[in-house]
Design a protein around this nucleic acid. Structure first.
Lengths: 117, 117
DNA sequence: CAGTATCCAAAGGGATACTG
DNA sequence: CAGTATCCCTTTGGATACTG
């Protein structure tokens, strides 16, 4: 496809932005983890472990840590016996809500189209 | 968080839908590849190789094949000398446009917030 | 140009056991 | 409950060379 020069620059910037997003959301499980927390607002470690089908505690722990570092998720240790830990989205994490919803909708349509074909 | 039973079912369905999406869009490069094709409408192999920073021809080939299998991308061999191959989104692939745009916007905001902090 | 083939290192990730 | 530690196999993916 032919493009005018100024358009090409715009495309490159957008490509970079997409890759920035994906750097944060990479990994097999991250989006699913965020979805779990997003849908329930607040969610404990063991609950997320159940929500995200197939994930191991090792992976959940690792990916949650990365999400925390990227300031998408907030971790709170609750004063219970035994200890429980609650995860919730930060204000910044909440801005992913649109994307989560889009992915949810798209997943449903895709299932209809491909799997239910 | 406490939830009423019927809400829990809804959440589970949504979680499954998100995972369906991610099954198709998994891999380090898939979203970026789709973005490249999406922004330029039609794009040749070597162009995508340039657009997606860091990808190798081996990976590009592999991921394009998977996208083709999932009916998101259409591959056309052009009758040129030497051969060129053009990729474009299928009608189904085009339904990802919203998600791509959202990821682009989010990436820009995220850069401002985290990297530009 | 658009791939494929091969080799090989690094990362991913499951299973299990253990700890505060 | 919420992790951490270890073992070890699998997958990913880069570099390079080759083909129609």
């Amino acid at each position: 496809m032919q493009c005018e020069p100024h358009l090409i620059d715009k495309h490159k910037k957008k490509m970079m932005a997409v890759q920035d997003s994906m750097d944060v959301l990479n990994g097999k499980w991250k989006i699913s983890i965020i979805s779990s927390i997003c849908y329930y607002n607040k969610r404990r470690f063991s609950d997320i472990l159940n929500d995200v089908e197939g994930i191991s505690n090792k992976m959940l722990s690792k990916e949650l840590k990365e999400l925390e570092i990227n300031q998408l998720v907030k971790r709170t240790v609750l004063n219970t016996q035994p200890v429980t830990v609650q995860y919730e989205l930060t204000e910044h994490g909440l801005t992913l809500k649109t994307i989560i919803n889009n992915l949810t909708d798209w997943g449903m349509e895709h299932r209809k189209k491909i799997i239910g074909e």
